[in-house]
Write a protein that binds this DNA or RNA. Structure first.
Length: 435
RNA sequence: GGAGGAGUGGCCGAGCGGUCGAAGGCGGCGGUCUUGAAAACCGCUGAGGGUUCACGCCCUCCGAAGGUUCGAAUCCUUCCUCCUCCGCCA
């Protein structure tokens, strides 16, 4: 959410910055400006009125003890003032609610360092690691490999749940767990505290990080009188963990990681990535979240990108980092890097992580602050990034490490997590491997 | 789910419907004293908003939302959370 005071002070500046996201974003501010002016005028008048009403009430109190008749007279005057205050307060509350409603729909203006552009074609590659693996056969997509090996199953998933679900079996099920455990261990050793949050959260929590009110159609919601929402990413619970808190000096930055399922309705994605694991209603992701002081968020952002890349390096997966252009960024982000992994089966780079600095946009919604050197509360900055998407990591592992015979060679970093299994092959996967 | 109890400032804890933003204590900060520290004593010590060049002044907030009243931390209603006991479960 934007700072209303800042918007009022420099409306043109905000409109110019928002316009970089696209033609619609800047237009949202016009009604806000009008209402803000109205609110201010009303508020000034109201405060004077409240003061007078308060004084009138005090007089009544005093007179009632000494002169009953005079007290009754003062009471009539106090009543008039009181009624007037109540009427104006009601109008003020309406205006403020309207402003809040509008402001919740305004996206975060991009940082200056974000390149101009309208979609992913305008994103800027900033680095690249490794090289595409070379095959002396035609590499195949992961869904063929998984199906052939009997470890990824889509017919049964459709029977259970419809489209965009997958049943993992044997080695694939184990691999999903192994990859997640590996990621958590890497991040844990790099300073992140592991969290296991609720997967169902309230509308208030969803509003805090920006999923609501604008993107309700992307979410799954429970039935019943008190609905809850399934998290589309662990960013939601992790970032909301410290809602309404003020951090003391020395407590920041906070770094969390969590392995959770993510649930996405994928409305509007009909016909897109219909095969394989790329776009599912349910997938696992290891998420990284930081809460920092304003002046350190940029440096922490760069480090978070490195943390995401680190797990891919350890798995030997060729990848690149792109800086998203203004038009391609998510609602809450001021600056986003995507990490894209190479998928030989599809001869393309594919997003496997998205690392965003939301600056104070979410912090303002959830009132997360810290005390500066002078002891004054200041809004914190929040950052989030995938570290990384587990399902898409399986995609990358299958496609990059496939052999001509259709088996998958696993990179050494995962061997301890796979109970010694080093290759995914057809046939029985060793069951009940204990450590 | 049922029956009780409780929600006040960073923490503990008072608070007859009328200068209560709220006694007192703890903690924290500043000062006096001290070579330094401790102790003692004195003062300060929440958040948001408005206004002012500034000092300051003003408004709002006692779990949340309504209501009664000239006036609510105090009375009423609903909701939320926590604690205890019972039931049900993993």
């Amino acid at each position: 959410m934007l700072d209303l005071k800042a918007v009022v002070q420099d409306p043109e500046g905000f409109e110019r910055r928002l316009a970089r996201r696209g033609p619609d974003a800047a237009a949202l501010l016009a009604p806000v400006k009008t209402l803000a002016a109205e609110r201010r005028e009303l508020n000034v008048a109201l405060e004077g009125m409240k003061k007078r009403a308060g004084e009138a009430n005090a007089r009544v109190g005093q007179l009632m003890r000494t002169d009953r008749a005079a007290g009754e007279a003062a009471r009539a005057e106090a009543r008039t003032l009181s009624d007037e205050v109540k009427g104006r307060e009601k109008r003020l509350a309406e205006i403020e609610a309207e402003i809040a409603k509008l402001l919740l729909l305004v996206p975060n203006p991009p940082q200056e360092s974000v390149p101009d552009g309208v979609d992913e074609r305008d994103n800027r590659e900033v680095s690249r690691w490794g090289a595409p693996p070379r095959f002396d056969f035609a590499p195949r997509p992961h869904w063929e490999l998984g199906e052939e090996l009997g470890v990824l199953e889509w017919q049964q998933a459709a029977k259970l749940s419809g489209s965009r679900f997958t049943v993992y079996k044997g080695a694939a099920a184990r691999l999903e767990r192994a990859v997640a455990a590996f990621f958590l261990d890497v991040h844990g050793s790099r300073g992140y505290t592991e969290i296991l949050p609720p997967y169902l959260v309230t509308a208030e929590t969803m509003t805090g990080t920006g999923q609501l009110p604008k993107f309700e159609e992307d979410l799954f919601r429970t039935a019943g009188p008190d609905p809850l929402y399934l998290i589309p990413t662990a960013e939601v619970p992790l970032t909301n963990l410290h809602r309404d808190e003020i951090f003391e000096p020395g407590q920041l930055p906070i770094r969390y990681c969590a392995w959770t399922p993510c649930f996405r309705a994928e409305a509007g994605a009909a016909g897109k990535d219909t095969r394989g694991l790329i776009r599912q209603h349910q997938f696992h992701k290891v998420e990284l979240v930081k809460i920092t002081r304003a002046e350190e968020s940029e440096a922490e952002h760069q480090r978070m990108v490195e943390d995401a890349c680190e797990v891919l390096r350890r798995l030997g997966l060729h990848h690149r980092v792109v800086l998203l252009c203004a038009g391609d960024m998510g609602f809450s982000s001021a600056k986003t890097y995507d990490v894209e992994v190479w998928l030989p089966g599809q001869q393309t780079f594919r997003e496997i992580s998205s690392v965003s600095n939301c600056e104070d946009f979410q912090a303002r919604r959830i009132r997360v602050r810290y005390r500066d050197e002078k002891g004054k509360p200041r809004l914190a900055h929040t950052l989030n990034g995938s570290g990384v998407a587990v399902g898409r990591t399986l995609v990358a592992l299958f496609e990059n490490y496939q052999q001509e015979d259709g088996t998958i060679l696993l990179p050494p970093a995962l061997h301890p997590y796979m109970g010694g299994v080093t290759r995914i092959d057809k046939g029985d996967f060793p069951r009940g491997v204990e450590r």
